[in-house]
Design a protein around this nucleic acid. Structure first.
Lengths: 380, 380
DNA sequence: TGTTCAATTGAATCTTTCC
DNA sequence: TGGAAAGATTCAATTGAAC
């Protein structure tokens, strides 16, 4: 069964449910104590906007979390045990991803972080289940732990996978906010962020409260990039609640699932202390795509551009006359600002707003500036 | 059958052979034309010191992609990169890795490069076959292709996996050489290397000879780190022979397998022209040390400046509020620290780092001091 | 000969809306 | 549901022409 088919089925099911019973608003901003798969099973279909998951990965570290029941492992069984451990880990991954996929909205996205011990298993499982990978992101640690024995390269990064429910999903990506955050350059797939230390690192009785606490800066960027204010973010491996703390700060709602008493206690205390940003600080730069649309014809109608005005490109290679209906004419050719621009250049497409200019005292300026003026004057 | 057991079995077999017949030196420094699996099958067990593999990525591209200015992206659309399903790709991966594992010496290592399209499949298959991952390495491209449509993060890296035959293998790692190459700091798992372009990029009839030629700097570092002079390096997806050319330069022996006539021809010509390395060339191969660069948004993410903070210029003529994405707002105007500064002053440009100030007990101080503080705290 | 500017290009899973 | 139209979108490096 294809991916989109599954999404469609789920949507239909959710719609049918809505007819039978009134939609109950999802209870958010809460920590659920329990096993992540069992607790996700209790959540309704398609109720989550984004999932951030930091699953355990003690594969090559000799951990016992996924070791099958049985007697002591000796040297002879070592390789067999390893293979079996992989299979057990894969099943664990499939199980929680299956539930994650069910409760995630059709246009929601999932983030998973891991290291080379587990990230290849996770990525494969994501693809096998029909998730569509959008990016793999490298968290490059500015201050990693050195390799003390000099036996390998310093393990200085972790990998995150960002995926949608399928190829055609319309996911949230706040492109402009990311570009602004990165000094007006596109945000790249490699992020330099310090590890969590100093004041930010939570302590209990003088020692670190959690072995793998993630820096808030990491979650900050993820939530700012891929959610809108008010969205519901789920973290099935909540730990000390970095996801919840940042979500609260950024005006997103959150649900955390965590099994261990000691982490639950630390997380609740921490999130209680987190301060939400006020609304004006939460405003981010918007892509034109997200702004209200203005037709070129509206500018003509409202008199901002008079019919008969001559437009040209930056190099004044072409001139066109504005007609009463907002179309342009250049010799025998005519069309919309976009269509004529494309036709004249022989290009497959053209953004007329930036291509065409009006002559003013300060030289040529793109007609897009007139649109911006119009938008400012007509804000509601 | 367990992994380590298999390795042991092979070693015993090889030893038995040596008694029956004198060891025939492996014929190296040669290009074998043909299918990689079929040709690897003809090689004896445990004869290769290192394998570098750049398999097809299975990019699964859709239609054409156009640049903002109208040009068409010259994408990888070769038949060799197309696989019907993930299952087909997985089988392909298993098949060539099986042969790779057989011909690799017990203490040899394998390197595989890929992108998020295929690297998770490759990593999973490596682990399933008993390979032991030593590092995943990130090739951070200093000059990647941008994301033209603003739909995702710029795909600015590729991933390499470095693995041994098993947990207890005694692999080659030239720790000291790597540390020297990296200005007396341990070599990290993220490598900044430019993409292959300019003089180094091989051309045929004015266009690129191969769509995915790898930079020699990448292979240089790999071969220097993980092989000894005289070692035999096999590249089963030889392409234009970057591996062969660098191996020759570094005094390593090489075997390349390539199917396509056109690549074979280019590779042979290229390697013929490659010169063994003289001492002076060694220093020029280093990638330039990365400039420490901090975006204003980083200071916001890491909490050095809270969203909502008010900034002003030295004369307090303008005040602006910091927003969540690192943009500034002043009345109706907003933009980056540089852009808004320029806009308010009516200047063509503005250095926001020195223009904007935060109010402290000691009066105003430029936000650039915060950047300096950040850099000091996060030095490598 | 040096400097500036325009054009080109690189493993890319690259739009949205309306009819 | 598919096709047409509207609208939005790029960074670093290299090369070669123009000055």
């Amino acid at each position: 069964m294809g991916v989109m088919e599954r999404v469609a089925t789920r949507t239909k099911k959710a719609a049918a449910k809505a007819v039978v019973a009134p939609v109950v608003p999802l209870e958010a901003d809460r920590l659920i104590q329990g096993d992540c798969v069992a607790e996700m099973r209790k959540l309704p279909d398609a109720c989550i906007d984004m999932i951030f998951a930091d699953p355990p990965y003690n594969l090559q570290l000799g951990g016992d979390l996924f070791r099958p029941e049985g007697g002591r492992v000796d040297a002879v069984d070592d390789a067999w045990d390893k293979f079996d451990t992989l299979a057990v880990y894969d099943k664990f991954t499939r199980d929680w991803l299956t539930e994650a996929r069910r409760i995630l909205k059709p246009n929601g996205t999932i983030w998973v972080i891991g290291s080379y011990h587990n990230i290849f298993r996770v990525g494969t499982s994501l693809q096998d289940q029909g998730f569509w990978i959008l990016n793999d992101i490298i968290w490059r640690k500015s201050n990693p732990m050195p390799n003390f024995k000099g036996t390998r390269f310093t393990n200085a990064h972790e990998t995150l996978i960002w995926a949608s429910q399928g190829e055609d999903a319309r996911y949230t990506f706040n492109y402009r906010a990311m570009k602004t955050l990165n000094d007006e350059l596109q945000m790249r797939s490699d992020w330099v962020i310090p590890i969590c230390s100093g004041q930010e690192r939570l302590k209990r009785d003088g020692t670190k409260a959690h072995p793998t606490q993630k820096p808030e800066a990491l979650l900050y960027r993820i939530l700012l990039a891929c959610t809108k204010p008010g969205d519901v973010v789920l973290d099935p491996f909540f730990g000390t609640g970095t996801t919840g703390a940042v979500a609260k700060r950024l005006g997103r709602r959150w649900i955390g699932i965590e099994r261990e008493d000691k982490y639950v206690e630390v997380a609740l205390e921490r999130i209680e202390a987190a301060l939400p940003l006020d609304e004006s600080a939460l405003t981010t730069m918007q892509s034109p795509r997200q702004q209200p649309k203005v037709a070129f014809g509206t500018l003509v109608e409202t008199g901002m551009i008079a019919p008969g005005t001559v437009l040209s490109d930056t190099k004044r290679r072409w001139k066109a006359v504005v007609r009463a209906d907002g179309s342009l004419q250049c010799g025998d050719e005519s069309g919309s600002i976009h269509g004529l621009g494309a036709k004249l250049q022989g290009a497959p497409s053209c953004n007329g707003w930036t291509f065409w200019h009006v002559d003013g005292k300060d030289g040529l300026k793109p007609i897009d500036t007139l649109r911006q003026t119009y938008l400012l004057a007509n804000e509601d």
